[in-house]
Amino acid sequence: MLEGFNFRIIWEYMPFFMEGVRNTALISLISLFLALIAGIVACAGRLSKWKLLRGVAIFYIESIRTTPLLVQIYFFYFGLPTLGFRIPELQTGILALMLNSGAYIAEIIRAGITSVPSGQIEAGVSSGLNYFQRMRFIILPQAVGVTVPPLLGQAIVLVKDTALLSLISVMELTRCGQVLTSERFMPTEAFFTVAFFYLCLYFCLKTLADWSQKKLIFREVY
């Protein structure tokens, strides 16, 4: 089946693929960073005492979680121009990815914070620590161990999500495959190479995630 796999074509297009990998990595990093911020803000809103803030946060998070990412991408891609915003595809894509991952990250952080046993919080209160001190010294350090592995999992999902940006003409890795297919009619070479590079990114992130799983868990010791 693989006789005649044209490695020369892949070599010829290698700089092109490398650019695609680089773009995918950059888009992922930027979106992840922005999504972390969005997630922290949304999580703070979700846990706040004011009903309005909580309501907005819940509405945001649940809308994202119950609708497909592609629909969200199209929502901004086709919708923003009608509001008068002429934003290039790349930025639109990053916006959609940021809001999408942001909602999931908000839930991951919330799960991490609520996983710290209430006894720990009581101990902090009894020592006279205020809310911010308790957060800084007691809750967040222990929440980190529970939060980092799922965050890395979300990073892996995000890298795969960037592939959908190819459908709004953003030049990332998947689009390289599409271009090679349409220019040279070689979908096998194109998409197997694309898949290979995604698998490389996946294994790097997965190794990091597995390592963090082992190293960062703090548990109450009886």
Partner: peptide, 9 residues
């Protein structure tokens, strides 16, 4: 490890 859109292609 691969995006679903690539799998569909």
């Amino acid at each position: 490890g691969t995006p679903f859109v690539v799998q569909i292609f």
